[in-house]
């Protein structure tokens, strides 16, 4: 018993001593006059090598290039999303960003409650009222949307030009309108360069699990490759890892999504349809600094570098120069408005 009491004493002393250790100069509290930005990730989002990590990179870049001080919060459970946004809004951030469509309701409520703070939602889902009209977001809330169909159109054209087959594949994650946008653009892109080509489109499921099911992704991809498909575009989160595995096994090609996924299966990733979450986050922070921030729906397409496809030293060998030139011409056509890209199936 006495030794236990002594142990308590020692622990207490160690703790008190450690309290006074300052390994780094203490971070000054948010002052309110600097460029203080808050970003809240989705539950378990950091480390996804895609969406949330993209927002993180955008924030980091703003720290380096704009002198912003970015506060990142990673929620632990559902109610932490709102709590994270609230903590940041209460600390007088200039801009509070929620990463992912799941923040839609919380952002809307908070933007109304804190009219003097700017908010932004990446992939904000617009609400329809009972008459079917879009409910506009509050004036201090930027609803950031991507024109995924435009990027998908380009990779569709690229797939059809490189594929050497009249059949192209698409593997979607959850069967929802957001992913249908990818499919619609991809289909249109394929048919733009090859009117008699067909696209086999399949979805991994109807629940959010469909974005986290590599086994199902591999199954779908293998059956598509066996039916004569040479290139598959996936828009399915980590389910796509199974698609890459199937491409590696069968010696065929797959197209990544959201971020450059070349490293998942080097030599078998034709390209990736990237969403420039980092560029969009950086752009919004820059707008806050320049005083040009405004709420409302803002769509990022090819013209704004919100979407695009990867063409670099890794995959140059897979894409002939003539094909690249053709795809670039199509890109210019879309930006100029000469080519219309559908966003629904």
């Amino acid at each position: 018993m006495r030794s236990l009491v002594a142990f308590v004493g020692v622990l207490l002393l160690v703790h008190i001593a450690l309290l006074f250790v300052h390994p780094a100069p203490p971070v000054p509290a948010a002052s309110g006059n600097g460029l203080d930005i808050g970003i809240v990730f989705d539950v378990g989002g950091r480390g996804d090598k895609s969406f949330n990590d993209g927002a993180y990179r955008g924030g980091e870049r703003a720290e380096h290039e704009l002198g912003a001080r970015v506060h990142f919060i990673e929620p632990g459970e559902g109610s932490d999303r709102e709590a994270g946004l609230r903590l940041l809004a209460a600390e007088h951030m200039k801009l509070v960003i929620g990463v992912g469509f799941i923040f839609t309701d919380d952002l809307t409520a908070l933007a109304n409650e804190y009219p003097n703070t700017e908010f932004a939602g990446v992939d904000y889902a617009l609400k329809l009222d009972s008459a079917g009209n879009v409910v506009p977001p509050p004036p201090n809330l930027a609803a950031l949307k991507f024109r995924e169909e435009q990027g998908s159109f380009l990779v569709g054209a690229l797939a059809a030009l490189v594929g050497k087959s009249k059949k192209l594949g698409f593997v979607g994650g959850m069967d929802i309108p957001l992913i249908h946008k990818f499919e619609a653009g991809y289909r249109a892109g394929v048919n733009y360069v090859c009117p008699d080509c067909t696209v086999i489109a399949q979805y991994a499921g109807v629940t959010p699990e469909a974005f986290r099911n590599p086994g199902r992704g591999k199954e779908l991809a293998l059956s598509q490759y066996q039916s004569g498909v040479n290139v598959i575009f996936h828009a399915s989160g980590s389910t796509g890892l199974g698609v890459f595995e199937a491409a590696r096994q069968t010696g065929t090609l797959a197209i990544g999504v959201d971020a450059d996924q070349y490293s998942e299966a080097p030599g078998h990733v034709l390209t990736s349809m990237v969403k420039g979450v980092d560029a969009v986050v950086f752009d919004q922070i820059k707008k806050v600094r320049d005083g040009t921030f405004h709420g409302g729906v803002q769509e990022y397409g090819l013209a704004e570098n919100g979407v695009g496809y990867i063409y670099d030293a890794h995959n140059r060998a897979l894409i002939p120069d003539s094909v690249h030139a053709r795809v670039e011409a199509i890109r210019a056509g879309i930006i100029a408005g000469r080519i219309a890209v559908p966003s629904t199936r």
Partner: peptide, 24 residues
């Protein structure tokens, strides 16, 4: 109480490991 103190000291060390001040 010992368990609590052990956890608090472990917390001190973890915080120091990421380069922050435990007190703060």
């Amino acid at each position: 109480l010992v368990a609590l103190l052990v956890s608090i000291v472990a917390g001190d060390l973890l915080i120091l490991a990421v380069g922050q001040s435990p007190g703060a």
